[in-house]
């Protein structure tokens, strides 16, 4: 009698690959032909469960390529990128790399960055809730030390730079989006912030100064260095306005 690990290995192989199912069919009671049909039910479930997880994490990619195409692409992805967790909300992180190398989407060069942005949105949805900035935390710090403090961003926040207009792509694909559906793909590079003000994860296009400021902050640089980086790149960057804005938006949650 095969051991439990052997039985499960054969079962797993039969689910992954229909070509290996006949070797497994003999493990079960009843007609092997019927067992093959039943193994196909499991195969369908496994691909459908992972496909649903991908569809839920990547709604915009799905809208861009169409549902039928997306489902076929998801099958390819599931085959080559096995799930490693019992929590399907963690599945699909590498879809951006997959679409970058997928020949059938080569005519959509912005698709990998859209996928990258959607994964950040997906993670932001489940991220820890932001705690509002506590001004009293600065009371014991001498003013001349402020620039040496380090900024902490809310766990949902992420920054992404792209050659494509990601902010606009996100906006026009929202269900409550009104106005024109047009998009100028050659409008130049976009720098976006992914964040979650309350429950809904959002994308915001940033000016160069704000992007460099928040990027430096997210890398753990000091307030002084972050403001310096922003002001050097963008002459009109206003340090005190920026600091107040991002604290108010609960993007910056503390200075330590």
């Amino acid at each position: 009698m095969p051991s439990l690990p052997d039985l499960q290995q054969m079962f797993g192989a039969a689910i992954e690959d229909a070509g290996r199912a006949s070797a497994a069919a003999g493990m079960f009671r009843g007609d092997p032909e019927r067992s093959l049909a039943r193994l196909a039910v499991y195969r369908g479930n496994v691909y459908a469960n992972c496909g649903k997880a991908l569809a839920s994490a990547y709604p915009i990619v799905r809208k861009i390529v169409g549902e039928e195409f997306f489902d076929a692409m998801a099958r390819e992805y599931v085959r080559s990128n096995p799930s490693q967790s019992g929590d399907l909300n963690r599945y699909g992180e590498r879809l951006c790399d997959f679409v970058a190398g997928f020949p059938h989407t080569a005519d959509l060069p912005y698709l990998p960055d859209v996928a990258r942005m959607e994964w950040l949105l997906h993670r932001a949805y489940f991220a820890e809730n932001a705690s509002p900035f506590d001004p009293s935390s600065l009371a014991r710090v001498e003013a001349e030390r402020y620039l040496a403090l380090r900024l902490e961003l809310s766990a949902a926040c992420a920054l992404l730079e792209s050659d494509w207009p990601l902010g606009r792509i996100w906006t026009i694909h929202q269900d409550d989006s009104r106005g024109a559906f047009e998009i100028d793909l050659d409008s130049g590079p976009d720098r976006v912030l992914v964040h979650r003000p309350l429950w809904r994860a959002q994308v915001l296009s940033l000016a160069c100064g704000d992007f460099l400021f928040l990027s430096a902050a997210s890398r753990g640089e000091t307030l002084g260095a972050a403001l310096q980086a922003a002001a050097t790149a963008e002459a009109s960057f206003e340090p005190s306005t920026a600091l107040a804005r991002w604290i108010h938006a609960q993007v910056i949650t503390s200075l330590v």
């Binding site: 499960q8 290995q9 079962f11 797993g12 689910i15 992954e16 499991y42 479930n45 496994v46 469960n49 992972c50 997880a53 096995p82 799930s83 490693q84 967790s85 019992g86 399907l88 599945y91």
Partner: peptide
């Protein structure tokens, strides 16, 4: 639900 290589995300 899992072999050594992949999680099948189903109740097997």
């Amino acid at each position: 639900s899992a072999t050594g290589e992949r999680n099948l995300n189903d109740l097997l």
